[in-house]
Amino acid sequence: MNRLTELFQSKSTGILNVYFTAGYPTLESTGVIIHNLAEAGADLIEIGMPYSDPMADGETIQQSSMHALKNGMTLDVLFAQITAARQGTTIPLVLMGYYNQVLQYGPERFVAAAKAAGVDGLILPDLPIVEYEAEFRHLAEAQDLQVTFLITPQTSEERIRKIGAISTGFLYVVSSSSITGKSGEITPEQEAYFARVAALNLPQPRLIGFGISDARSFQKACAYANGAIIGSAFIRALKDTEDVAATTTAFVESILEPVL
């Protein structure tokens, strides 16, 4: 069974999904981060494939991506690192990146390599629904890779249902109309939107992401969905760290500790 399916069957609340950029802060960080995220209690890991022109990302992920590329990260290096990391963990792994990377690697070759490395799902924010249906869905399904789509506060109910119908993975509920990396309090408007989406009774699990940065915002988001995704805040914690393993563990603990 796909590890994502297993996760969502065994856990339906408080799922912690942590994103990091592969190859940051050092080329060899990937395995260390995966191991320590899993050990410290993350439920799911999103591995960012660094891209030169990440148009939906804020400065934090832009910078980490530039560093990772300078460190020598490529898709082949990443697949080898994931293959190695997979030996020691059963945590679900999701790859996130831009469709041009997949297109250049060759979509069929890409899904085969991802599957072989032990990847369970994909998030390709700039792959449109039309092209997904026409040229990608069957390839991902053939390798049992679940594909996640994003919805935003501006997405109409009709479109949310359409996306829900074609999405084979969890639904990525973008918390506000923004690029990644915004932090701060979750507003009443955002809570109303989370509640509105929750009331749609969609078949797949929902994880809230963008702007989730600490224990407080994580717990608030978890009240309206199966869990939440933290990315930029973790990347910021990794910046300038001497000890990637310890920083990773401490970060997960800081999110999972109870909020008083």
Binding site: A56, P125, D126, E131, I151, T152, Q154, T155, S156, V174
Partner: peptide, 11 residues
Amino acid sequence: GGAYIPEMLHP
């Protein structure tokens, strides 16, 4: 051609 954009830009 096409419109390879993140969902945030769709509306």
